[in-house]
């Protein structure tokens, strides 16, 4: 089964909170977490082989091992995920990080909100935009 949201995040706390936030937005939404770039790519390759396509990929920028930007590049090289929106999700709001991510092919750049409530707001708007209003994209 492919999850609705594939989330690459090394911070366990953030990943934990995210799972709550996603359930809070919509109890039916599923989220799958990868803890670093390599395992993320391995999982995604398996998904591609099994023709499982997540509806949205959230990608942290600062990852141990290969960086978020490299992971982004590699995802974009897999034709199967060509139309899956990849959203960079980082504590950084550095202009250069934003620009580079968009150049490489990120569909959006989100600065991680602080706090659970803000996260819910953030996830809800993601859900509304990418799952409801833009169904056609998927």
């Amino acid at each position: 089964m492919s999850p609705d949201i594939f989330y690459v995040e090394d911070d366990q706390d953030f990943a934990f909170i995210m799972q709550y936030a996603v359930k809070e937005v919509n109890d039916d939404l599923t989220v799958s977490i990868a803890e670093d770039g390599n395992s993320a790519l391995a999982t995604l390759k398996r998904f591609a082989e099994e023709k499982h396509r997540p509806k949205l990929i959230l990608l942290d920028l600062n990852l141990p091992g290969i960086s978020g930007l490299d992971v982004l590049k590699r995802i974009k090289e897999i034709p199967f995920f060509k139309y899956v929106p990849v959203i960079l999700f980082s504590t950084s709001d550095d202009v250069n990080d934003v620009r580079t991510s968009l150049d490489i092919g990120a569909n959006a750049f989100l600065t991680k909100p602080t706090g659970y409530h803000n996260l819910i707001i953030c996830v809800r708007s993601l859900y509304d935009f990418w799952f409801n209003q833009n169904r056609s994209i998927n």
Binding site: D13, Y20, E24, T114, G115, Y116, L119
Partner: peptide, 16 residues
């Protein structure tokens, strides 16, 4: 910022 976010998030999560 990262641990601070955790503090805030967990606290809010507990409250909620």
């Amino acid at each position: 910022r990262t641990p601070l976010t955790s503090i805030k998030s967990y606290t809010e999560l507990v409250i909620a």
